[in-house]
């Protein structure tokens, strides 16, 4: 039971990270490899807000959300927009976003040094709950609650709101969206902002969960995030949610029953098997794109 809950907590963070990743891919057909850098940067910024700003963990979350959104706008403006007219814009954006990610990580190292950073002692409330014989902390409950709320909010926004309709129109056919009067550049920028805001919150939640922020935390989750969105079905928001939970649970149970050195073997092996059985991903209905 304890392991199941732990798997769900870490899985919800993976899911939140992956949903931001898959949002940009699904709507704009671009893979933003600066997303993991946003994840890492936000963890450091979150710790600094608590440590120097004296804010509580919860007050830091909305600030990190906004920080992530601004980073997303910068990523779009610097790494993607200048290349959008090129025939190889997919590949060019991939490379330029890797470059930008490298710069962000270098800035973090310059500002915070290479060492692992933690939240100051006493940042975490000690409230604990007993759930069916398992220990759950208030912090874990909040992690799950924030992740779920953001994912539900995003899904509602995409399926119901005017902005979401514009996003779906751009995803389906950018030319048609332009003809209909949609400012495609603006939708693109907003999509990046939302995506990065989710990645940022995932980053600070991850740091809270393990009370650690490291320069390499972005690259550690990068492959997991990619695996999750491929297994979930590229561009599928619910797919990323399920994929994230599956990965989180697989990791936790692998550590518990087989041994921590087998964690990645088991987790990625499981994702591999899922892809063998369902190449389009769990919820993938890969649409035929207009050429």
């Amino acid at each position: 039971m304890q392991q199941l809950l732990n798997g769900i907590f870490i899985g919800s963070i993976y899911a939140l990270f992956a949903i931001g990743f898959t949002l940009v891919f699904g709507i704009l057909d671009r893979l933003n490899l600066a997303h993991p850098a946003v994840f890492a940067a936000s963890a450091f910024v979150g710790i600094e807000l608590v440590e120097r700003g004296g804010l509580s963990l919860w007050a830091a979350l909305p600030i990190v959300f906004v920080f992530g959104a601004v980073l997303g706008l910068l990523i779009e403006r610097l790494a993607f927009r200048p290349l959008k007219g090129r025939a190889d814009a997919h590949f060019a954006g991939l490379i330029s976003s890797i470059a930008l990610a490298g710069m962000v990580i270098a800035l973090l190292q310059w500002r915070y040094g290479p060492d692992t950073r933690r939240f100051p002692a006493g940042s975490f409330p000690d409230t604990r709950y007993e759930v069916a014989g398992a220990q759950v902390t208030l912090v874990q409950v909040v992690i799950l609650g924030v992740s779920l709320a953001l994912m539900v909010g995003l899904t509602y926004m995409v399926t119901r709101s005017r902005l979401g309709r514009g996003m779906r129109a751009v995803a389906e056919n950018p030319t048609a969206a332009r003809v209909l009067g949609v400012n495609v550049d603006r939708i693109t920028a907003v999509t990046f902002a939302i995506s990065s805001a989710l990645g940022a919150v995932a980053g600070v939640l991850f740091a809270i969960n393990v009370n650690t922020a490291q320069l390499g935390m972005g690259s550690a989750i990068e492959l997991k995030g990619l695996a999750v969105i491929i297994v979930g079905g590229m561009g599928s928001l619910p797919g990323a949610l399920i994929g994230g939970l599956v990965l989180g649970l697989a990791e936790v149970f692998a550590v518990q029953y087989i041994g921590s050195s087998w964690r990645d073997v088991i987790a990625f092996g499981l994702l591999f098997v899922i892809l063998l059985l369902r190449p389009q991903g769990l919820l993938g209905a890969r649409k035929v794109r207009e050429v």
């Binding site: 005017r162 309709r165 514009g166 779906r168 129109a169 389906e172 056919n173 030319t175 048609a176 969206a177 003809v179 209909l180 009067g181 949609v182 649409k287």
Partner: peptide, 17 residues
């Protein structure tokens, strides 16, 4: 250039974007 995966209703709504 209709939006094939969107509903007819959403297509019309996009006209009034």
């Amino acid at each position: 250039q209709i939006l094939a995966t969107l509903t007819i209703e959403d297509n019309l709504r996009m006209g009034a974007w």
